[in-house]
Design a protein around this nucleic acid. Structure first.
Lengths: 146, 146
DNA sequence: GATATTTCGATGCAATTGCATGAAAACCAA
DNA sequence: TTGGTTTTCATGCAATTGCATCGAAATATC
């Protein structure tokens, strides 16, 4: 048997392949739903969401990066785009003059409120509704090990 | 309670968030391992891998797209890059003059053989070794529903 | 407290992706 | 047939990502 092929590999490689395929597919579907509703890209929303969730604490770009597992330069540019659209504001912080705080604007808050119901519905439709409570908790447990 | 935030949402949204975070993180780690070994990007490898797996059948771009859940224009360009590096060859097919067959070159075969051990080790390290056989089969079952 | 090292964020450039659209062949329906 | 529709693949252009590197501020070391 030729082992140089993922399909001829042991079960863990098959599981890996399916894991990647399913997660990519789900992400595309949810993104497509947001786009169909003329909303922001998911990454933009995630930043806004992290900023709101942290309230009343203010976050710095590096904090958001770490939560979202996004590269530094991508976060820098994502924030630039959000700021260009008046969705967030960059506030300089006296404690560390290299850095800054990222704060939601009124427009950013409104955008979050617009997106959330659509996002939630998409998650339910493509993910939550397809799994039983037991399966979800089992999945969470497995994900926790990874 | 404010429902306009993923952290205040029911369990399925938390599971969604963790699912996306974990899958993205794993993908990054495996890609980083390939890169550290000076190998091809994962997407390139996946195409070669699909082509080899289908042997002796020949695949067309559209077949690979569907297997990989990649957009048509991305597959078109990915194949162009692979062909530019002599990893695959595009063979015109008489049965359908719009299309073509994608065939591995000797160099493409060799590249696959180079990548595979590194890829397999990365999958084991970041994924397979962290889960028990039971967990893997449970995960597979859950992924099958999504 | 002077110097070296690390951390935080930005940016030029190349590679990739997304989107709209085009061209050619296949298919279909009257 | 002939004309309209669909399928398959390519491509121009804009947006995004990856990579290397920079500048400035903070921190550690001596």
């Amino acid at each position: 048997m030729n082992e140089n092929n993922i399909s001829d590999c042991q079960i863990s490689c098959q599981a890996w392949a399916q894991f990647m395929r399913v997660s990519g597919n789900l992400l595309q579907k949810v993104e497509a739903d947001l786009k169909a509703a003329d909303l922001l890209p998911l990454a933009w929303f995630d930043v806004l969401s992290e900023v709101r969730r942290a309230q009343p604490k203010w976050l710095r770009p590096i904090d958001i990066q770490e939560k979202m597992l996004v590269k530094q330069y991508n976060m820098s540019r994502l924030i630039e785009r959000l700021a260009n659209e008046d969705l967030v504001e960059r506030k300089s912080c006296d404690c560390d003059k290299r850095g800054m705080y990222i704060v939601l604007t009124a427009k950013g808050n409104a955008a979050l409120d617009d997106i959330w119901p659509v996002y939630k519905a998409a998650i339910d439709q493509h993910f939550g509704d397809k799994l039983s409570p037991n399966e979800i908790s089992s999945l969470m447990k497995i994900l926790g090990k990874l």
